[in-house]
Design a protein around this nucleic acid. Structure first.
Lengths: 364, 364
DNA sequence: TTGTAGGCGTTATCAA
DNA sequence: TTGATAACGCCTACAA
């Protein structure tokens, strides 16, 4: 059982076979649930007993070499430290685990925060012979992602998606995302129900599908109420600082149409932020400006990240099904790994509004 | 280049060898940094060019089968969704990545929250031929961990450690942890500097090394000031609810020694919590009881998790070097994988106190 | 129902 | 400095 090469080794199916006086291919079959039925039940029990007795462990490296399937997929995300991603990853792993798969993880927002890190990660993953990729780093216009797809890799996007471009060699990849239009509608409807009519938006980076979709969703939701935005400012990133800066900019902006009130009140009574971090930054800036939330300004975030309920005021937010998103994406990939190519479905999950203390009736 | 078995394949070193009219073992050597020098530089360049041209990717599954080294380690943690772990994992991956390793992750607090999940995860990881384990789930008395060690697995603990028991077959495993005694000393010294003399502790679960060490550290830190605890309550878990319940219990407790003041003020003016979630629960309970933080009660957490600065009051906390902890643990494991066995070092990292708004001078 | 033979892509050992 | 040969452990036709 000790070998010349390799490091710490255990028994192999050949050891079990010798132990039982049968051939190793018989043992191999006995170990495979899909072909176990070909084995006599008496022998089957003996194989199982012997395997247990000798302490056999399958060697996936050998199986992977033989079958080309490593039972491993690559997961690309910007940074696991961003609180959006842990539940997504957890969902991914729950799905993979159920099928005996593992995830190889890469934080691509490493040093340079760009394509180079993702490229290197993918190469290493391909060396490990991952069977596919779950990508949470997609940009709307992502040349790198396109080339990965053209190389034949199986890909499912999570959380963010890419743009479809007809005519070019660009396909919309299968993705699991949240219904951002619905999310914004829930937010806006809630505010309108509280008699707000002057509602502003702090938008996410326009290069991400979430930033774009939420912005468009916001505008459409307002239109449904025959309202116009009381201001929209893009944020450079999904971060507290960016939200703070954007709010400062929003407060400085000249109100369009109706004049700003004499007491210096802003042109809006409510703000919908593209995510919670932006909302936190906005909250900071509002408080610094002496504006009270929710008495003077109502504020809504997006994602419902942990601890929002502990803030003061507790932040109203659009809750996304992060865990489910990861879970479904992984399942989609696993199915794609069995089935025929094609079947590029996109799953859209329903968000819900979690009303807390940062929203209140519009001041009059 | 297309093969009969396997799935999507690329060129192999044999393809390169044929392309160049050399033997594949020559190509293999050329690809190995450690043996490259044996190759003529002219040939070396040609091999590199051909490899690039044909788009060769190493097949780690094959290498793993041959060498017994998968370039993969297993990481066991309770739940990546717990905000303590993302930075630890990030540190781990940064270290592994630098050496070309990947982590296989398992959330062991899955359904039953216990040994069974960890056991299954370890088996699957061993099937994948991980070279070692990074374990963030250690209990002080962990029979399962002992058996894993006895099976010959390379293990490094992170964040929590196990108890040494002389005489029995139990060794203290190499670990990277935070200096909890120092952390508590920083907290207590800060409070004493603010004239607090009646300081209570909400302790972590006594089955975890962190719960135990912080509790002992708290008592020692008080002793150094010739003070006695104004109450200690164990929490059932590191969770908001548990902290809330423990604080309720603490408030209900009869003050020992000096009588409780007539106005119903508690027997303490400051509380050190074993972690931030417990502190948040405590804050909740205090506010419900009509006690103001920090005016009446000062409160300190532990871990300095994200968003503490956004709370009101912003929570003072003992900051742990989570990223560094993961990074060092992974490096320790990688070194153990090369070197001789033994060398069971333990690394203790320095925490620091982050003073925010939840601590103030003791009321008089 | 079981056995035989060969291959998966790489590394290691010996020879040349 | 390069080549030849044999593992590594498992899987899969195909044969019996």
């Amino acid at each position: 059982m000790a070998r010349s090469k390799g490091v710490s080794v255990g028994p192999t199916i050949d050891d079990i076979a010798r132990h039982l006086g049968v051939h190793k291919s018989t043992v191999s079959r006995a170990m495979d649930p899909a072909r176990r039925h070909l084995i006599g039940s008496a022998l089957l029990h003996k194989v199982e007993a012997a395997s247990r007795e000798l302490g056999w462990r399958p060697n996936r490296a050998a199986a992977a070499l033989s079958t080309g399937r490593s039972r491993t997929v690559g997961v690309l995300l910007p940074d696991i430290t961003n609180p959006v991603f842990p539940p997504i990853l957890r969902g991914i792993e729950d799905a993979l685990d159920a099928e005996g798969y593992f995830a190889l993880l890469a934080n691509t927002a490493r040093h340079d925060g760009g394509v180079a890190a993702a490229q290197m990660a993918v190469e290493r993953m391909q060396a490990q012979r991952v069977e596919g990729f779950l990508v949470a780093t997609a940009l709307r216009d992502d040349a790198w992602l396109d080339s990965l797809r053209r190389s034949g890799a199986r890909i499912v996007l999570v959380n963010r998606t890419n743009d479809r471009v007809d005519g070019e060699d660009r396909a919309q990849l299968p993705a699991v995302i949240s219904d951002d239009a619905l999310g914004m509608r829930l937010a806006v409807d809630h505010l309108v129900g509280l008699s707000h009519t002057r509602i502003a938006h702090l938008a996410g980076p326009p290069g991400y599908s979430t930033g774009q979709a939420r912005r468009v969703g916001f505008e459409q939701a307002l239109q449904a109420h025959r309202l116009k935005p009381a201001g929209i400012v893009d944020c450079a990133a999904y971060a507290i600082d960016a939200g703070d800066a954007a709010m400062v900019q929003l407060l400085a902006a000249k109100p369009r149409g109706r004049a700003r009130a004499v007491d210096g009140a802003p042109a809006f009574t409510a703000v919908v932020a593209a995510n919670d971090l932006i909302a936190l930054g906005a909250l900071q800036a509002l408080q610094r400006a002496g504006l009270r939330v929710p008495q003077q300004i109502s504020l809504i975030g997006h994602n419902d990240m942990p601890l929002l309920a502990q803030l003061s005021p507790p932040l109203t937010s659009v809750r996304i099904q992060h865990h489910e998103m990861g879970y479904r994406a992984a399942r989609l990939l696993l199915e794609a790994l069995r089935d025929v190519p094609g079947t590029a479905s996109t799953v859209v999950l329903r968000p819900e509004l979690v009303v807390r203390g940062s929203t209140a009736a519009a001041p009059r």
